[in-house]
């Protein structure tokens, strides 16, 4: 089974990082599959907010590939992206996604407001606390502290331009983006007012995007798939032929679901009659 592992490395830390800090950085070489992306999203995925093209540098490979798949399938709609995504094979989408996932592009210089300057309290509160009456949980639950994302599934929001964020939230809201199996984003976006959307977009636009975060996501065979509930994808586990070695641990306490000693630790083996906590 181990030999069948196909590792999808996301933002692999060992890839050479572009030295953009000083002067003109060397132009990274995008793979063939990503050539079409460069014109709009930039060689490093820095995006072109002025023309409505979002930053994608350092988003996870899983996330970028999933968006391409969604554009191709129509669960995310965009007249420019749809034909491009349809023209790429799944392998090409993965290659392009892997490339951009590894890019550590400079944060946006102009266009974005100075941190905190234009971000309203409402945007910050929605991002970090949520709204009980509207049933909006805080964005940070899934999108990480300061909007750095929770890779591989949940994208970073920090430093995305406000117009893109607004458009994305509106797409969730009006149902043209439906690539969220649990509909978490659809229900949240539906609960937000246009002013809320503007405020939260402004808030995240004011933050600094994160550097790529390395994630390993490996399925036993091929890229991640979604088996139907009830299906066991592997049949490699035969019954254990060895004799029963089982002996009791503790007095029947499960080691999950909350077993604990008096102080709350997870040990179930030892009697802790006198614990002070």
């Amino acid at each position: 089974m181990r030999t069948a592992l196909v590792v999808i490395a996301i933002g692999i830390g060992t890839l050479p990082r572009p030295a953009h800090a000083q002067g003109q950085p060397a132009q990274p070489q995008a793979p063939a599959a990503a050539q079409q992306c460069v014109a709009c999203h930039g060689a490093r995925g820095e995006g072109n907010p002025a023309n409505g093209f979002p930053r994608i540098a350092g988003q996870s490979q899983y996330y970028i590939a999933k968006q391409l798949e969604s554009y191709a399938a129509g669960s995310r709609q965009n007249p420019i992206m749809a034909p491009i995504a349809k023209g790429l094979s799944p392998e090409e989408r993965d290659a392009a996604a892997a490339y951009y996932a590894a890019q550590d592009a400079a944060p946006p210089k102009s266009g974005a407001p100075a941190p905190q300057a234009q971000a309203s309290d409402r945007g910050r509160i929605l991002a970090t606390t949520g709204d009980n009456n509207r049933r909006v949980p805080a964005c940070i639950n899934c999108h990480g502290p300061g909007g750095i994302g929770e890779p591989p599934v949940y994208p970073y929001l920090a430093g995305l331009d406000a117009a893109y964020m607004t458009a994305a939230l509106n797409a969730w809201r009006n149902g043209t983006r439906r690539n969220d199996g649990g509909q978490q984003m659809a229900t949240i976006a539906n609960a937000l007012t246009p002013d809320d959307i503007a405020a939260v977009a402004q808030h995240y636009a004011s933050l600094t995007p994160p550097k790529p975060i390395p994630v390993t996501l490996a399925q036993k065979s091929g890229p991640a798939t979604k088996p139907a509930p009830g299906n066991v994808p592997s049949s490699s586990h035969a019954a254990d032929p060895r004799p029963d070695k089982s002996v009791g641990v503790g007095q029947g306490a499960a080691t999950t679901g909350g077993t604990q000693g008096p102080g709350g630790s997870g040990e179930s083996k030892t009697d802790r009659s006198g614990n002070a906590r």
Binding site: D240, R242, G248, V249, G252
Partner: peptide, 11 residues
Amino acid sequence: GGQQVVGSPRK
């Protein structure tokens, strides 16, 4: 199919 299976009845 585990390597080792251990039961702990309530006592």
